[in-house]
Design a protein around this nucleic acid. Structure first.
Lengths: 338, 338
DNA sequence: CTGAAAGCGCTTACAG
DNA sequence: CTGAAAGCGCTTACAG
């Protein structure tokens, strides 16, 4: 059996109040008693029960994290950042994988709330009215990571997807490409879909190219296989293309796989730029040039922000946009050169 | 403020005992009261406080998971399996990333214990005496995933690494390879190191080939970059090799990267087989033939086993060895054929 | 400096 | 069927 504060008190011949004090405010306790108590604690291997503490303090030092699909490599670095940040602020993370299911998502939030976690970071999901209603009801601090909400006043940490997509496209244009295609998430997807499409098209227009989304864009969910198929279709309807902007690394690898299998050289014949800079990007062949999101930092900052929110600190800004950059590797060719 | 059982009782004009009963044993309560209480619960958006419950039941329905490096893609599928299993048995998972640091590992276990989690699954780590001592002291159910302990009686779920390495090597031999090299983890690593080396050498010997580890084996930690270097060294000292067994997918990709960059065709000139079957294996070029571990199932079963342990059920077996298989893709060439 | 008491939000015998 | 009481393991005014 685990020993309790009562056992310690008995062994040290003091009241439980005094034991509690040496734990929380040792200066208030006379030296001799303090030492005897410390010794008893040691002997009994006593550790305070965090449930009892939580009940009193209304704080559990535990945070919830909602993730749509934890097997997506995108989250590996994000979670690592969250973990480090949590560790730094003395918190633990309960991670809930919602399998992209709104019902399971709401259920998870409810359970987390029952467990009295101090706050939740929600990743990658758009915030629907029923979610927001639940958050309000539960009155629980929320931070969004890799997503945001313009309708609601919820703190968030993400990259400016529209601009990042613009930059990716412009990068290709600077490298001399004009016949650029895109493999994108659905237009209904407010994160890796719509804004990146908008950025893509804005860059084309800005540089005097026709956007022509019907022929330039092909859609795929975030899986490799579907992106492979999308590349196939894209190539079929737009065979003159010299470059592809894939709106995630996994999509880029799916595209590259199709190209390889059809003996189309990357980047000699077709250049590919990805998005995310997951760890895979550095392991593929050719190594993937990609729009880097600061994945670790996004996770780190999201938890940091949540911790500030919980502690009633003034947030520097409601919606934080972290900076992205182009991580140049070997999958894009500069056409100007030859 | 969150409403409590007291608020519900007041609104429904009953005692808190009765409210508690409709929550835990509704049949014991008269229908009219029950309905009134349910209504009050609805109105107040009442949800029971899991801390208070946990304090009484000595159960939190929360499990701890210790992971050495969560950014390692190996864990993506494992955690997904754990999550699904936990969800099935009504548990949540607190995930602790220990950054491969024994001090942080022990600290994590202590915090988890203070939070009264019901059990812990530990992944990939060898069990040192000080760990075991702590587990004993804390008297907390433990299950090992992707590792095991022969010294201690701790339940575990893993693959038979020695046999899996044997099979990988034999697979290469069957494909006509004799000059086979290996990129391995350290001999000190009891998981991805020693047993896989032993399996590798046993296969060579069984098939009448000299093991000659000094020239056949090069070492690398689990990172891509180091494996790239290892491949370079291996190739330098053993240039006649026609195949390499890399003891993880990431090591395999590092090796392939080196080969690509030096215009050595994979698999035409050198075949590569990996280990793990992480999601990357299907996304590389060429797609990686690899020894598949049932990652999702390992995670799922580990949590399942832990749940059984917690509920005092008889375990089917202390040490579960899950079956592996060779996932044939395109990185190994059959030399016999031409 | 220290102990007794009240209380955090629940559950569960015990009486009636 | 229902309520009062004790108790889970703590913390924190309050008195002394």
């Amino acid at each position: 059996m685990k020993s309790t504060i009562r056992d310690v008190a008995r062994m040290a011949n003091v009241s439980i109040s005094t034991v509690s004090r040496v734990l929380n405010n040792p200066d208030l306790v006379a030296k001799d008693k303090r030492e005897k108590i410390l010794e008893a604690i040691e002997q009994l291997n006593y550790t305070p029960n965090a449930l009892a503490r939580g009940l009193i303090h209304k704080r559990t030092q535990t945070l919830g994290v909602i993730i749509p699909d934890i097997s997506n490599l995108f989250y590996a670095e994000v979670i690592r950042g969250m973990e480090d940040s949590a560790h730094e602020s003395g918190n633990n993370l309960i991670i809930c994988n919602t399998v992209n299911d709104q019902a399971r998502r709401l259920a998870s939030v409810k359970v987390l709330s029952e467990k009295q976690i101090d706050g939740i970071v929600i990743t990658s999901e758009p915030i629907y009215p029923d979610s927001y209603e639940l958050f309000r009801q539960l009155n629980i601090p929320i931070v969004l990571a890799a997503t945001h909400s313009l309708e609601y006043e919820i703190p968030s940490v993400r990259v400016n997807d529209e601009q990042a997509a613009y930059d990716a496209t412009e990068y290709l244009i600077r490298k001399g490409h004009k016949r650029i295609g895109m493999i994108s998430g659905s237009t209904l997807d407010p994160i890796s879909g719509l804004p990146r499409i908008q950025g893509f098209m804005r860059a084309l227009r800005t540089h005097g190219l026709e956007a022509a989304p019907e022929i330039r864009i092909e859609y795929a969910n975030y899986h490799f296989e579907e992106s492979y198929e999308a590349m196939k279709k894209l190539y079929a309807k737009f065979p003159e293309l010299t470059a592809v902007f894939a709106s995630s690394d996994e999509r880029a690898l799916g595209a590259i796989s199709y190209l390889h299998e059809n003996r189309i050289q990357v980047p000699e014949q077709v250049s590919v730029i990805g998005f995310d800079n997951t760890r895979m990007a550095g392991m593929s062949y050719p190594k993937l040039t990609t729009v880097a999101q600061p994945l670790y930092q996004m996770g780190f900052q999201a938890v940091r922000k949540l911790d500030q929110l919980i502690n009633g600190k003034q947030l520097d800004e409601l919606r934080t946009y972290m900076s992205h950059w182009i991580e140049e590797r070997h999958s894009v060719r500069d056409i100007n050169i030859n």
